[in-house]
């Protein structure tokens, strides 16, 4: 069981850059652990050695193609360990998005206008909130409601704190049957 994700009300942390790659999120030399915990201290270690300029809140908001590069799940672990539960961006790299969702870190693909609105607002006021409701797949920011897509399966996983392995273990009989008929 993982922590359930139902709703999240939090201040937003803006990171208005494109192509934030996994080496920036966590440099390779911090991948030498054999467990998943404790990586938050290395988040953006070389890129922002003094930490994020604004660092209060659980919702990270970034430019397009967030998480491009390596498949290292350490990137998602580090972000979660640093206290984030959701990331809003105009686009995510495929592997990163899967890794994030598999760890209960919600990725929200929003319109460029919506993301830009958040960036603009945080330039004025560094302490403003967004409200995410996973059941209705919406995020509300300064009165503006934005819908986002998530596969119904993943949505149920997050809402119930379940993961793919629970499901895959439950269908092993089916997998064995597939192996028998496999071409």
């Amino acid at each position: 069981m993982k922590e359930k994700f139902i709703t999240l009300l939090s201040t937003v942390v803006p990171l208005p850059f494109e192509n934030i790659d996994t080496d920036r999120i966590i440099p390779a030399r911090f991948l030498k652990t054999i467990t998943r915990g404790g990586l938050g201290q290395h988040l953006f270690a070389d890129w922002m050695p003094n930490g994020l300029p604004l660092n209060h809140g659980s919702i990270l908001v970034t430019g397009p193609n967030f998480g491009c590069g390596s498949s290292r799940e350490h990137a998602a672990w580090a972000i979660l360990d640093a206290g984030f539960r959701a990331i809003i961006s105009t686009s995510f790299a495929d592997i990163f998005r899967v890794n994030a969702l598999n760890n209960g870190l919600l990725t929200i693909q929003a319109s460029p206008a919506f993301v830009e609105k958040i960036f603009a607002a945080t330039r004025e006021d560094s302490y403003i909130f967004a409200n995410i409701d996973l059941a209705s797949r919406t995020v509300i920011f300064q009165g503006q409601r934005e819908s986002f897509d998530i596969s119904p399966y993943k949505q149920q996983c997050l809402l119930n704190g379940l993961d793919d392995i629970d499901y895959l273990l439950s269908i092993r009989k089916k997998i064995r049957q597939y192996e028998k008929r496999k071409p």
Partner: peptide, 22 residues
């Protein structure tokens, strides 16, 4: 294709992963 560690665990446990078709 490349996968994350959670998916490595899935394949270890079931020889399968869950993915949308690209």
């Amino acid at each position: 294709f490349g996968i994350g560690t959670s998916e490595v665990e899935m394949v270890l446990a079931s020889q399968c992963i869950l993915q949308p078709k690209p």
